[in-house]
Design a protein around this nucleic acid. Structure first.
Lengths: 145, 145
DNA sequence: CGTTAAACAATCGTGCGCGATATAAATAAC
DNA sequence: GTTATTTATATCGCGCACGATTGTTTAACG
């Protein structure tokens, strides 16, 4: 197995660099909304279901509270969400879209199409590849659990 | 096309979360070497070719000097590399493995196997998927160029 | 030559991302 | 009913990652 340490053969490196590549495609699009990529993901999750908790959002995004809390504070000070402590359970913080946060969804409708176009593949092919990468993620997550 | 904003259908989200998942698998392995994942990538590149420049390494890793310079300084203060300004061209910094840095390669030989095992796929399948993700990365990089 | 342009690395500021720890509330144990 | 444990979020420190800027060196060119 000679010198097996070739960076270009590492699937982790492919994923790592592809992730950065996505970020670079997204950046100019998201700049017009005043969002970073992780902030955009949080907004997408909230557009899908308003009133989620910090913990619930973290489970969806695979992020810790130490990452989300400051990110959500920035979204709050940008005026897109409110962070309200739940009355029933004072430990829980509920995230609610402001009117401006809801309006932002309309401005973001074109983005997925731009990304799909930049990927240079048809929708069917993207869906298949997406499912394969999710399966890879699940296998990796299972191995550390 | 109803409500097309579903996080789980975003290939970028799959890649983003898979990248984090890899990091979580790598962490305990790399902790024994005293390396972070990006530092490990830099060392792999240098194990493959010693004496690279900062700019050359950045091209391979798709990283800017603003990311690499502090990372390389940490590798230097860990005793794994030396950073030497080239005599022929004083603008260039050449990276050279120390003896300890070369020795680290042996301690890292088992890692790729561990990662492959954690991915839950055979080598052929991983190679195919890896190539697909690289193709995706190239398409994305081309679209921003 | 000398002036201008380009190349290269470093620095600075902002925003993740995580582990470890803290704090406070809710629940369980006794 | 007091104590212990668990749960939910927040704080802190470290290390990326990038864009913008700076400073130095080299190359280009009239």
């Amino acid at each position: 197995m000679q010198d097996q340490l070739k960076l270009d053969d590492f699937i982790c490196f492919a994923v790592y660099t592809a992730s950065h590549a996505f970020n670079r495609v997204y950046k100019p699009l998201l700049d017009t909304l005043g969002l970073t990529y992780p902030q955009y993901l949080a907004m997408v999750a909230l557009w899908g279901e308003d009133g989620q908790t910090v913990g619930g959002l973290g489970e969806k995004l695979f992020l810790e509270s130490s990452t989300l809390t400051p990110l959500l504070k920035r979204l709050e000070s940008a005026g897109y969400i409110r962070r309200e402590r739940s009355r029933e359970d004072e430990r829980v913080v509920v995230l609610r879209l402001t009117d401006e946060g809801k309006r932002l969804k309309e401005k973001a409708t074109g983005i997925p199409g731009c990304i799909a176009a930049a990927s240079g593949r048809d929708a069917v092919d993207l869906t298949r590849l997406q499912a394969e990468i999710v399966a890879l993620r699940e296998a990796l997550n299972k191995s550390v659990a």
